[in-house]
Simulated assay, not measured.
Amino acid sequence: MRVIFSAALLATVALPLGAHAQTAHEAAGAGAGLATGAVAGAIVGGPVGAAIGGAIGAIAGGTLSGPQTARVQQYVVTQGTPSAYVQDQVVVGTPMPRTVSSYPVPADVGVNTQHQYSVLNERTVLVDPQTRRVIQVID
């Protein structure tokens, strides 16, 4: 019974997230994140942990792949985007201060994303424009 409930709950979470994916790459990343997060969550918290882990994993799974990050990094360097400095270590989940600007990734970069970029502590980061949290650090 628990397995059926967990599967139904995961499907309920996965379908809306998959619908929000912009490209096949984002959909694949979200799906992989959903599966990985669900497994990790199930180990820690059972069925409820699986649902929460899957949802978080799907969101994080929408990040860019290696070739895409290279294109974004090259674009950021050519723009001469200034670096803002923050005291905290720049990692996924770090909130960006309101005083720091983020910029859209133009379509001509060849990356279809709704995320924006910024430079924090000399590191290019992708930022969720709604939450202003770092979703990917590009090295």
Rank of each mutant, 00 (worst) to 15 (best):
G93H: 10
G29R: 08
H115F: 15
V119S: 00
G61I: 03
T78C: 00
P67R: 13
P82A: 12
T23G: 07
G54W: 07
G110C: 02
A30S: 14
V13S: 04
L15E: 08
T124H: 02
V100P: 01
F5L: 08
Q79R: 13
A51L: 11
G29L: 07
D139V: 09
G29F: 05
V92Y: 02
P82N: 07
V125F: 00
M1Q: 08
V125Y: 00
A28S: 10
A107M: 08
T131N: 01
I4V: 14
D88Q: 15
G31Q: 00
I135Y: 00
A50W: 09
V44M: 11
T78Q: 09
P82S: 13
G57H: 02
G62L: 08
G46E: 13
A38P: 07
R2K: 08
L10C: 09
A11P: 00
I59V: 14
V100A: 05
I56C: 08
I138L: 15
N112M: 11
N121F: 07
S102A: 14
V72H: 01
N121G: 02
A38Q: 01
V119I: 10
M1F: 07
Q114G: 15
L9R: 02
T94Y: 00
T69E: 14
G45L: 15
V127S: 04
T69Q: 14
T113E: 10
R2Q: 10
A42W: 12
R133M: 06
Y85R: 11
V76F: 07
R2N: 13
Q68I: 04
L34R: 01
T36A: 15
R71K: 14
G53C: 12
V100T: 07
H115A: 12
V13I: 15
Q89M: 12
T78I: 00
G54Q: 07
